[in-house]
Amino acid sequence: MKFRLKIWRQAGPDQPGRFEEYTVDNISPDMSFLEMLDELNEELVRQDKDPIAFDSDCREGICGACGLMINGMAHGPKLGCTTCELRMREFPDGSLITVEPFRADAFPVIKDLVVDRSALDRIIAAGGYISVNTGSAPDANAIPIPKEIAEEAMDAAACIGCGACVAACPNASAALFTGAKISQLALLPQGHPERERRVISMVNQMDIEGFGNCSNHGECEAACPKGISIVNIARMRREYIRAVRTGGQVRASV
């Protein structure tokens, strides 16, 4: 297969960026999008040019490192799929593909298609954990939890923190990410003792990082490679309203 590529090039964080056009040929339809970029980079290196910088790690859709805006869609056109798992057969032969970095002021560009997503880490650091002594693993059935609840918590925990929700949101909101991280703990008894402090701290941190407000477009759920539902955003809001109403401020400062 043959493709024309329009790729965002930016030398550094404070440098102006621009699109550059490339052509790739002899691409196997079974290649992943990142393997196609690898081929292009090999060619750029042969020509003694600067290869295109992009993030990747596991290349099996579980780490959350990769993430590109492909033809205006986070992780490309296929639902429930990361960029590394996206195959070139999803694109018509000979077509023009536009590739941009995830754009949000909270995700500053480092180089080309690589953005700094540590804002998400800081949201986790603000409260996305439980404070317990983690001795040996407890018996799995020590705390009975209904299967439906366990499944719901597990679905929220499927978040790999890739930031596609932020990238796809017209407001660059991190509500789905934060909602998933709050939900996975709010659903389980281990998460309950610190629930007020957690939701207030994480929501505050989300705002400090400069993410937008959630307008309920639901585009994040479509972009999420793990298909995490916006019901987790509703749950985060319930947690937040509860925390504000029950004076989470007081309990949080203890």
Binding site: M69, L79, T98, R103, A172, S173, N213
Partner: peptide, 27 residues
């Protein structure tokens, strides 16, 4: 606040469909 959250706009933006509820009404 929403406008400030993405000062550099996308050149190309499209809905991915599926469960998305993004419509002209929401936009």
């Amino acid at each position: 606040q929403n406008r400030k959250a993405r000062s550099t706009r996308y050149t190309m933006a499209a809905s991915k469909g599926g469960p998305s509820k993004m419509t002209p009404a929401s936009r």
